[in-house]
Design a protein around this nucleic acid. Structure first.
Length: 298
DNA sequence: TCACGTCAAGCAGAT
DNA sequence: ATCTGCTTGACGTGA
């Protein structure tokens, strides 16, 4: 069991995920920003290592506009050494990495152009992880996509398109149950046809499910991961106190988290904490988990 | 230095 | 019709 947080670190002063406007695009600008982003990533990873945080979701903004037609720059070649160095650090310390392309990445879109754009975006994510020479336990997680008033058809469209996707993407792609359209049961249906592993989002499941309790859910989704995929991944969050239904919590509720660890005792998995205060909650979670025999110490 | 309009991209649900 | 959330606000112009 490893515990982590997504994308940015609020303790460090470095500004990660620095991007710029399309209007100010230039190769010079791109190089500058990528350099900054990679430096910042390195700082974050160092911080994480120091604090026993061995799971991290890298921002999709490492290379701004990488999948946009405006980009004709060979950033993979230019930054080859730097990506490799970061990757070596990750591997040396046995860290786990994931990425989460944003909501515009839709394999099952009705619009073929959106699908094509999404492939490019996925390709970009795969290139990042490949440049770091990480194995296939480093994953790219997406949601199933839109429903378009016909879930059955939309799932079928996903499966059909998935089958022709390049293996470079496929070997890293995992799907996550979401909070309104595709629940765990839908993802399992998709898994049967595609063998895609499922990232289980605890919070999404609590608001969108087909009646499975936590234990049943874990029994089901953990089976979708094979050895080469690494151990199963879980996105963890809970309801923001006093906030609107579905809003992510701003700080970790320790009692609820302790209870969650207790309820899932029979299973080993890595936890991505989707809590607004990021590394602060990760540190709390690690404190709580450190008594747990599943938890991985340095 | 700071305020604030705007930023590549889509969908669903709430208002 | 318009706004909001999504994994993360932050860029950059104009005063």
């Amino acid at each position: 069991m490893k515990i982590g947080y997504p994308c940015i670190n609020h303790t460090l002063t470095c500004q990660g995920s620095r991007t710029f406007r399309l209007k100010s695009y230039s190769v010079q600008n791109l190089i500058e920003k990528v350099e900054n982003n990679l430096d910042c990533l390195q700082q974050i990873l160092k911080y994480n290592l120091k604090h026993n945080i061995l799971f991290f979701r890298m921002t999709s903004d490492l290379v701004p506009f990488a999948s946009h037609p405006i980009n004709r720059f060979d950033w993979q070649g230019f930054f080859k050494k730097k990506f490799r160095t970061v990757g070596q650090f990750i591997k040396k310390h046995d860290m786990r990495i994931s990425m989460h392309p944003d909501q515009f990445t839709l394999i099952n879109s009705l619009n073929r152009i959106i699908f094509q754009r999404s492939l490019k975006e996925l390709h970009y994510h795969a290139e990042i992880l490949d440049s770091m020479e990480l194995n296939t336990s480093a994953k790219i997680q997406i949601h199933v996509g839109g429903v378009y008033n016909d879930k059955t058809k939309s799932i079928k469209r996903f499966i059909k398109r998935y089958k022709n996707i390049h293996d470079k993407i496929k070997r890293r792609l995992v799907i996550e149950n979401d909070d309104r359209s595709y629940c765990l049961r839908d993802c399992l249906l998709l898994h049967e046809q595609t063998r895609i592993p499922i990232v289980f989002d605890v919070f999404h499941h609590s608001v969108n499910n087909a009646g499975e309790d936590l234990d049943e859910s874990f029994a089901l989704f953990t089976k979708t991961w094979r050895r080469k995929d690494g151990i199963p991944m879980v996105d963890y969050s809970h309801q923001k106190r006093g906030g609107q239904k579905g809003q992510h919590a701003t700080t970790l509720n320790k009692r609820v988290f302790r209870n969650f660890l207790c309820q899932t005792k029979p299973y080993d998995f890595d936890i991505m904490l989707e809590i607004k205060d990021k590394e602060k909650s990760a540190l709390e979670a690690i404190k709580i988990a450190s008594g747990d025999e599943r938890f991985k110490e340095l």
